[in-house]
Write a protein that binds this DNA or RNA. Structure first.
Length: 282
DNA sequence: CGGGGCTCCTGTGCGC
DNA sequence: TGCGCACAGGAGCCCC
């Protein structure tokens, strides 16, 4: 389940593709392209050079020399893996390598191969080639990045006051805040000592301040550990992250709380599993 | 506006 | 062993 830290890690890894040219494309699964025409997709991408790779929310955005954008969403099980052409690829791009062959190789990319593989077990992932990434509905309507100036506790207070629902539901709504999913929302609420089922409106200023800090902290920590491999997440080199080894509550229902040893409880909020400590979280 | 439920998928793990 | 089923959960959709 790639959320902000996982997509950020992949985006960092894929920077080796900047200024590389696409020299071959394999589309094994057209579902990833949605309604897009595979021939147009191929024609628009072949021979183009990658100008820029960046993240917005959970989306990865690739700017091409044609000034078009390839917008990639990994959804649940999507992976972007550099290396050889993989058997599990749904879509794969071959890239030119410009750097001189050195020993040891000058970049990990030169060492491990020339293909970027889009692997996606459950096929929820999407790839869209567009003129302007900001016109994609989900991106147009997306809330601020948690690390932007716009995101602070007063911003949270503002959106909490405007909605009637539970604090967990608000935090994972991409239209309100970008990049938080079911793992890190549980982590942030644990760290802030707030029960996920609390109505957002009911939070005090003190709690909102702590929550804003907690959100940034858990996301930063997960980036530092290169993402959580709780399902099948891997980084751009196909390696697992280590952030899941340092989670407080996610996936740990029934186990003792790391802080007070109380048995962690799990409930469903909007159909999604949600773990919390009934003692530490108020 | 909000929440519940369904859908898209497929691998895994459980109970019988 | 093997079958059926629940579950994982991002996000869009419909409905009430």
């Amino acid at each position: 389940m790639p959320e902000l830290p996982e997509v950020e890690t992949i985006s960092n890894d894929l920077q080796v593709l900047v200024n590389k040219k696409i020299t071959d494309i394999k589309v094994y699964d057209t579902k990833i392209l949605g309604a897009a025409d595979i021939n147009i997709f191929n024609a628009e991408l072949l021979g183009k050079t990658v100008r820029r790779i960046f993240r917005r929310g959970k989306h990865l955005i690739v700017k091409l020399s044609s000034n078009k954008f390839l917008v990639i969403h990994l959804r649940m099980t999507g992976q972007l893996v550099l290396g050889k052409l993989l058997a599990g690829s749904r879509i794969a791009f071959r890239f030119s390598i410009f750097e001189k062959k050195t020993n040891p190789p000058s970049s990990p990319f030169a060492r491990i191969g020339q293909w970027l593989n889009f692997v996606d077990q459950r096929r929820f992932g999407t790839m869209d080639l567009v003129e302007d990434w900001q016109k994609i509905k989900a991106l147009k309507e997306m809330g601020p990045e948690p690390f932007s100036d716009e995101f602070d506790w007063t911003f949270l207070r503002k959106i909490f006051a405007k909605h009637k629902t539970k604090v967990k539901s608000l935090l994972i709504d991409q239209r309100l805040i970008a990049g938080i999913g079911n793992i890190y929302v549980q982590e942030a609420l644990f760290l802030a000592g707030i029960k996920p089922q609390r109505l957002a409106k009911s939070l005090s200023d003190k709690e909102i301040k702590k929550l804003a800090r907690s959100i940034k902290f858990v996301l930063k920590k997960a980036i530092r550990y290169r993402g959580s491999s709780v399902d099948n997440y891997v980084n751009g080199y196909g390696q697992k992250g280590e952030a899941h080894l340092h989670l407080y509550v996610y996936g740990q229902a029934g186990q003792p709380c790391s802080h007070c040893q109380t048995k962690l409880r799990d409930i469903k909020i909007s159909g999604r599993n949600t773990v919390y400590c009934p003692n530490c979280q108020k």
